[in-house]
Design a protein around this nucleic acid. Structure first.
Lengths: 152, 152
DNA sequence: CCAAACTTGTTTCATTTGTAACCATTGAAA
DNA sequence: TTTCAATGGTTACAAATGAAACAAGTTTGG
């Protein structure tokens, strides 16, 4: 059977890692305007606020796991939110390396203010898609997450 | 009709901007190991190599447009590839602000070496998906790209 | 023709990031 | 116990990034 060599060309515009990164970067950049303009938050700070608002109390390690952040990012984001008095640390009774983090009233207030904005952003984006497209997005992302999980 | 308030909670793990970013970051990080380990390239340098390998000759501005990079990233990536003697600059005859960039033999060789690795990576990832899932991925990404375009 | 506005690409500076080293504490093994 | 590895979290340093200022060249409109 005769087979042809693939041309040694990669089309960057349709290369999945590139497309994904570009898309995520654009979406994230657009969304970040909301928490940046509103409160001058960085992305790690936003994720920290969001994680604690959702779960109530977490340790730094748990925060990192939930929001896929390196521990130095968590550390710095927590320090900044603490400086703003948006969160407090409570030492663990049994393990003195651990601190339990929780939002203060001011932190909760900021979180409550952000949630509808975040949801509105997501809805605005998804509203421009058909029902099938929305399903494709969610299904595709989920499938890729799993595939990547397997790979490494 | 009675309606309930939505709970003021955002589930980060299913929030689309977060999921997308996380996925793209993981994919990109995994893929970057290839060009990082192989040649010590950064992402902007890889994209520059890839763009020039694909198109042959481009200006810095065109490179930035094709690969969605800020012009300072392009500038620095080009400088580095030039330092490695992987590309050369040719001044434009008519507009002396412009330089036409092209890969040298060594640059082309590196590109040719990278292309199969990049394709293999993409295939390995997609091979873990069903045909429907692959269609969902491509369709979903395309739809989101368009939706985002509309939004801004 | 000339000044003002704009474009291409580089550089400077401040901020963000990741890696590695680090400190303090805990757990496990000898 | 004492020691040694592992863990939670911070810090120091170097590299990557983005914004803004910049130089050099080009275009436009009087």
């Amino acid at each position: 059977m005769v087979r042809f060599m693939e041309p040694p060309i990669l089309e960057l515009e349709s290369f999945l890692p590139y497309r994904l990164y570009r898309l995520a970067d654009a979406v994230s950049r657009e969304f970040s305007r909301i928490y940046k303009e509103r409160h001058g938050l960085t992305r790690p700070e936003w994720r920290t606020l969001s994680g604690l608002g959702q779960r109530g109390t977490m340790t730094a390690t748990e925060l990192g796991e939930q929001s896929a952040m390196h521990k130095t990012k968590v550390s710095r984001a927590v320090a900044e939110l603490e400086r703003r008095r948006w969160l407090t640390r409570t030492p663990d009774e049994k393990d003195r390396r651990v601190e339990h983090l929780a939002l203060t009233k001011a932190g909760v207030a900021a979180y409550r203010e952000m949630v509808p904005l975040a949801k509105a952003f997501e809805e605005e984006l998804l509203a421009r898609l058909s029902e099938e497209e929305r399903e494709a997005v969610v299904g595709g992302v989920t499938a890729l997450e799993e595939a990547l999980e397997e790979m490494s």
